[in-house]
Every structure is written in C-alpha cells, then in structure tokens.
Simulated assay, not measured.
Amino acid sequence: MFLEPIDFAKMYKEHKQKSVFKRKSSDEWDKKSKEMAPRMQKSHYVEDFISKMEIDKDDVVLDVGCGPGTLAIPLAKKVKRVIAIDFSRKMLDELESFAEAEGITNITTYHMGWDDDWSEIEAVDIVVASRSIEVLDIEAALLKISNLARKACYVSYMAGGSFVDMKILDYIDKTIVTKPDFWYLPIILYKEGYLPKVDYIPTSSGSVRYTDEDEFVKSLIWSLGSLNEVQQQKAREYYELYIKDAPGAPKDSVWAFVSWNCDIKRG
C-alpha cells in the first residue's frame, strides 16, 4: 500500500511534542470546570455533532473526555445508557449535578482518562470523543476506542492547528509551533483498515466571551503556556481594538468531525 512507508503515527507524536499547545493536567481542567459548564452545556455545536451520528434508543455510548456533560446529557435522552469518563473529577461533578437537575439517571461516570486502564468498562455500541483527543499517542487512542465500540466511533478535532487566532498571534508577535492538524486521524485510521468519513462543524465566535482584558490575556496564557510582558500588553491593546466592543472570540472555529464504522473494514 502506498501509505505503508510513511509512519504517520510517529510524525504526529513528534509534531505534538514540539507544539506550543500542550496537554492540560487534570488539576488545570478542575479549575476550568465551573466556568466551562454553563457555556458547554448549551451549544449549537452539540446539536451539529449529534445530528451527524447514527444512534438507536438501545445503544450504549461511551463518552471519552466528557467534560461537564456537553454530549453525555443530551445523548442520555436518546440512548439506553451513557458511560461518561473524564480525568477531571470536577468536570464529572458538574456533569452529575447537571444530570440530577435534568432528572437523568442513565449516566454512569468513571474518573479516568485516555492513559488509564479501561478494562472495567464493558463493550459499548458507540464511542464519542468530542474535542478531547489531545493525546500524545494518537494511534493508540484511535485503536483503543475502535476496539471497544461494536458499531461506530465519532471524534471531533480542531481544524487548522491552532486554538488561538493567527491574527492575534501576529499582533502580539508570538511565534508558535502549531499542533498537528486533523488529517493525521483519517490517514492513520485508513492505514489500520478502517474507512473514515470527514465532515466539519463550525462553531460561532459568540460562544466565547471575555468580560475584560485581564480575562482575555488569561485565556491566551492558558492556551499558549506563557506570554512575556510586551506580549501581554499587546494582547490588551488587541482586546481594546477588536474585542471589547464586539464580544466573542476573534474568529469562528472549525472542528473536523471524523467518524468510522468499527465493524466494516476495507478488503
């Protein structure tokens, strides 16, 4: 096969290690849980994601990196059961509170992440990983969920290689190494014999709002890891010029929606 001489999994790993966008720890996500929950639990992105899935009322769904219940809550209203896992205990707390408020009783939560042993999780019909597959070993992660799902997997991954608008980076004079783009995923899946499909989910800039310039700078540091004093000052200028009177993120984001049937492989 023409792709065999190229080790895309190794390329991804090397690229990921060089990227400025590092994987966040569970403690960091714990601190984000309170502010994320209200925004993530009401989103057009969720409707778009679920509309692209093929689901049945008798399905058991595993939601990997479930966060505060962004997908787990609406999916629980449509399927037999949802198993929701996240390595942030605070995110699971938000999910459980939200589920209780909604009267949902068919969600089981586990405090675990991508690198943990999933042997206690039963085989499921469907696996979803919504904006949560920021792992170092992408091949291992894709195979892990493919082997667990009886029917299909649905994954979303940022298109473009940067969580921060390049216009902002240019303005504050911040040079970065982007993260691996989404095309690694379907290529690796194809090499493993699957027939992945790729679609796209645009997200509105209005889903992200900053109350002031300090919050904007803080969000950039969260994504980029660090900014020097000059870059922080330039970021404040950018906020005043382009964001303060036009609430919302400076650009819309696009998420690649990658799906594949786990029981169908190419011959």
Rank of each mutant, 00 (worst) to 15 (best):
D93P: 01
G193D: 01
G225S: 12
L185K: 06
S88F: 03
K57R: 11
A149M: 00
K52S: 06
I121H: 05
I264H: 14
Y157G: 06
P202A: 03
E28P: 07
I107W: 00
D173E: 15
G69M: 03
D137Q: 11
V20G: 15
E120F: 08
V254F: 09
L95M: 06
W255Y: 08
D137R: 11
D86T: 04
V124Q: 07
P5Q: 00
D86A: 02
M40V: 07
S162A: 11
E96V: 07
K78N: 06
P74N: 03
W118P: 08
K179F: 14
W260S: 09
S19E: 10
L148E: 03
Y190A: 14
H44V: 11
K10F: 06
V124Y: 03
M91I: 08
D170Y: 08
K34I: 13
E100R: 15
D165Y: 03
E237Y: 01
G248Q: 12
Y184V: 10
I6W: 09
I187F: 07
W114C: 02
L75T: 03
W255G: 02
A9P: 01
M36K: 10
W183A: 13
V124F: 05
S26E: 11
M40G: 01
K77W: 04
D214R: 13
R236G: 05
S132E: 04
A149K: 00
A101D: 15
V198Y: 05
E35C: 14
A159K: 09
V61N: 07
K80R: 15
E139C: 14
A235D: 02
F8C: 00
L189D: 04
L71D: 03
K10E: 10
W260D: 08
K16E: 13
I188V: 13
M11L: 09
P250A: 08
Y190N: 12
E54F: 10
W183K: 07
M53Y: 04
R23M: 13
L142H: 04
D165W: 03
V20D: 15
I145E: 03
A256M: 03
K16H: 09
V64L: 14
F257V: 07
E237T: 11
D116T: 04
V254I: 15
F163R: 08
F182N: 00
Y171W: 10
V230T: 13
Q233S: 12
L189N: 04
